[in-house]
Design a protein around this nucleic acid. Structure first.
Lengths: 244, 244
DNA sequence: ACGGCGATGGCACTGAGTGCTGTGAAGAGA
DNA sequence: TCTCTTCACAGCACTCAGTGCCATCGCCGT
């Protein structure tokens, strides 16, 4: 792989001018080259800065920690997701909205399949990187949950629903994403994620793929044991419909 | 709080004999005393071992890292959960089984409310501990998901369902647990978790409280907007029942 | 007494991360 | 053109987490 094209830099502060700091990209490229050659833990920060030809102190100016260099674009993606959620109106279906937000993450991975696959292999075998990835995923999940908490404010069990649905969306997204990454980026990642998110939407009461132009034809199924009290049936219907 | 009673040690290797290593408990007690006094990051491992009156090397013999001393009982709880899941038969309802497994974690927290509340406050304000807690929670979630993957083997979307349900169960459990921890351990944690898990069970098609002694006489209610195609209704029923 | 043997303590080392200072290049203003 | 400011960078020194190695001590069986 070409090391210069494998490093998706964002450029933080110089973004307004459209210019990208070459140093950041150079550090990411050097780091991944060494990580793939000898492994993550066998590579020190001194090795990276030596290969990149910069001072050690500069590394920590661009990346707060050694782990951050493996996820150089998540900060921007998280900001994009928060902006996307904040831009939504009150008439949007909340669950569909967070599903669309999750698709933003997939798009970031799909923009650079080779890079994403290599990073996946790296994080899979290095426990420290796995732990770091969890904290990244957690921030996405928090963003979704906070949005849903706002939309569900006042509802019964609002925060519970928000947390559970956010977790389910993230889990479904990651299930499809990792399946795609395991296949070396072959296949249609978008379709896989759509299918996974459709399952979550169907489980939580919204129509999986609302036909925008057609009338909203919802189907709701309630399963109850005979002998259950009527209030339980009503409760189930309310729960499935997501109303109070 | 009494520092000697606040440290729930487990005793790993000496468990068979029933004896507990006092050193481990002493380290936990000393660590929490200092963490609460000056904060986690302001406390070095040298401070802890000095207070406990042991050598620095011994700390890392009992705890692989500084973070581990904050979660001294999770390793045992995780082993308990895996054993519980492995002991289940094939006739058990899978979702109910993982809900029961999640209740094991709650029980561990509820066994020592004062300790749990203090740890919660600690992890809430220290980013490093939050990240570590995520990796702990992730292992619980993996245990649940692996169990469900085994039970759902062969089903359509088996791994997807397993991952999503495991994530939902963990999220619901944590929602109730954290609510209980925020209230300083007041209220009925068990009831809160039961309610949260009941929501997840209802969302994923199983009856929340299956009456074990009665005959399984299921009733299916289908609510549909007129005009929905039949295949959509069938799809909903299959999805809700979790069959193929 | 003797020889393992496991738990502990001490020491030195690596490596991540931080604070501080010097330096050079670029830019604003006289 | 000279100067002053500013900012990114390099270099240094330091703290602290974590590890490997070895010496020591107490315990136990022979």
């Amino acid at each position: 792989m070409n090391s210069s094209s494998a490093a998706p830099g964002d450029g933080e502060k110089a973004r307004a001018a459209g210019a990208k700091p070459p140093m950041r990209d150079a550090l990411v490229a050097a780091a991944f080259r060494l990580f793939l050659e000898r492994g993550y833990e066998q590579t020190t920060v001194d090795d990276i800065v030596a290969l990149a030809g910069v001072g050690r102190r500069s590394f920590f100016r661009y990346f707060p920690s050694k782990e951050d260099v493996v996820f150089p674009d998540h900060e921007r993606c998280l900001a994009d997701m928060e902006a996307f959620l904040a831009a939504g109106g009150e008439d949007e279906e909340p669950v569909a909205r967070v599903c669309d937000a999750a698709r933003l993450v997939l798009r970031m991975y799909a923009e650079n399949p080779a890079f994403s696959v290599q990073r996946y292999r790296l994080t899979k075998r290095v426990p420290g990187l796995r732990a770091y990835e969890l904290s990244v995923v957690w921030r996405y999940e928090r963003a979704l949950a906070d949005y849903l908490r706002g939309r569900f404010a006042g509802r019964r069990d609002g925060t519970l629903r928000a947390d559970v649905i956010a977790a389910a969306v993230v889990a479904a997204h990651n299930n499809a994403l990792r399946s795609w990454l395991r296949s070396d980026g072959q296949g249609d990642a978008g379709a896989a994620v759509d299918h996974a998110l459709g399952y979550v939407q169907s489980a939580f009461g919204a129509a999986p793929v609302p036909p925008a132009a057609e009338a909203p034809e919802d189907v709701v199924v309630v399963v109850s044991r005979r002998g259950a009290p009527l209030w339980r049936v009503v409760q189930e219907i309310e729960t499935t419909l997501g109303r109070d």
